[in-house]
């Protein structure tokens, strides 16, 4: 099908978009990278990675159950992830805001039970082993134009909703007590955020697989927040980094199809995170040495 990389960039580029499945993959990748970047940035800031991971994982039984019932997998992803978001958001509230420990026990239980349901659906369905690895570890093949349209609509709605609550959400994240005192509906904003995160997790896991969502949800935001503490700048960097990871990952997966796509994505994300963290450590060391030189 493809001939691997030549050293002619323009020719490679033309090759990349020769087939409509690749064009669809790029469209889908671009949409989910933007959505995941925006929500991931808030998620990292709010330290809700565990909840995010759980929401992503939950979309696996959602999709498996939908396939089992003969419904569209796409709907299964969203329904499951949003339902789990509501459960996670509802439960800690009834604990009266105490200890994070019970919250994480709840999240862990939700996740394990969801995965157990996934295992059940897979065994009831029997013999869709290949699509099982796709559900867990992602695939970029066979994305239909209709699926791209669904992704686009859901992403647009989610981003609009995020924009609507962006300022109170930021306030509630940075200082929940003061925000509460100022009349910001902290709980409502938190619940709304989790539901949006569920939408994003459901979208991303359609491409990266339920287990590797963090490649686009956490790693870009983690990279950007290593580079700069300024909110607006790191938000923009997050989205740029997410797009870069998605685009590069798709290109590599196209030219070197012998290894799984999810591996390329997570590796690119991890490399960018490690590079940013290493760069930051080096920069602070240089500054320290410089200071010592000046004071000595």
């Amino acid at each position: 099908m493809n001939t691997g990389l030549s050293w002619n960039l323009a020719e490679d580029f033309r090759q990349l978009f020769l087939y409509s499945f690749m064009v669809n993959a790029y469209r889908a990748g671009t949409i989910i990278a933007v959505l995941a970047g925006a929500l991931g940035w808030y998620m990292v800031l709010r330290r809700q990675s565990f909840a995010g991971h759980t929401l992503a994982v939950v979309s696996f039984p959602g999709a498996a159950g939908a396939i089992l019932l003969g419904a569209s997998a796409s709907a299964g992803y969203f329904v499951a992830a949003i339902a789990a978001a509501i459960v996670i958001a509802a439960v800690p509230r009834s604990l009266g805001g105490k200890a994070r420990s019970s919250e994480s026990a709840v999240i862990g239980t939700v996740q394990a039970f969801a995965l157990a349901c996934g295992a059940l659906f897979v065994s009831l369905y029997g013999g869709f082993l290949n699509s099982l690895t796709n559900l867990l570890f992602g695939t970029f093949l066979g994305i239909s134009p209709a699926q791209v349209l669904t992704l686009l609509v859901v992403a647009a709605v989610a981003l609009a909703a995020l924009a609507a609550i962006a300022r109170p959400l930021f306030f509630a994240t940075v200082d929940p007590d003061v925000a509460e005192a100022r009349g910001v509906p902290v709980r409502f904003v938190g619940t709304a955020f989790l539901v949006l995160l569920g939408c994003a997790a459901g979208e991303v896991s359609q491409i990266t697989g339920a287990l590797l969502v963090f490649a686009l949800l956490v790693m870009p935001a983690a990279t950007a927040q290593q580079i700069t503490p300024r909110p607006a700048l790191s938000f923009a960097l997050t989205i740029a980094c997410g797009l870069l990871i998605a685009w590069l990952g798709l290109a590599i997966a196209y030219f070197y199809p012998e290894y799984p796509f999810g591996f390329y994505l997570t590796t690119l994300g991890f490399v960018s995170y490690v590079a940013a963290a290493g760069g930051r450590a080096a920069a602070s060391r240089v500054r320290k040495v410089g200071l010592q030189a000046v004071t000595a």
């Binding site: 990292v44 330290r47 990675s49 565990f50 995010g52 991971h53 690895t133 867990l136 570890f137 992602g138 697989g209 287990l211 590797l212 969502v213 963090f214 490649a215 956490v218 790693m219 935001a221 983690a222 927040q225 012998e258 290894y259 799984p260 999810g262 591996f263 994505l265 997570t266 590796t267 994300g269 991890f270 995170y273």
Partner: peptide, 27 residues
């Protein structure tokens, strides 16, 4: 304090490696 971000990044990459080994194994 960046615990859960670090954990998330590290284990997502390790799972990616798992996907790689799984495909090597099955092929």
């Amino acid at each position: 304090q960046s615990d859960d971000t670090v954990i998330g990044s590290v284990f997502a990459w390790i799972l990616g490696l798992g996907a790689l080994f799984l495909s090597v194994y099955t092929t």
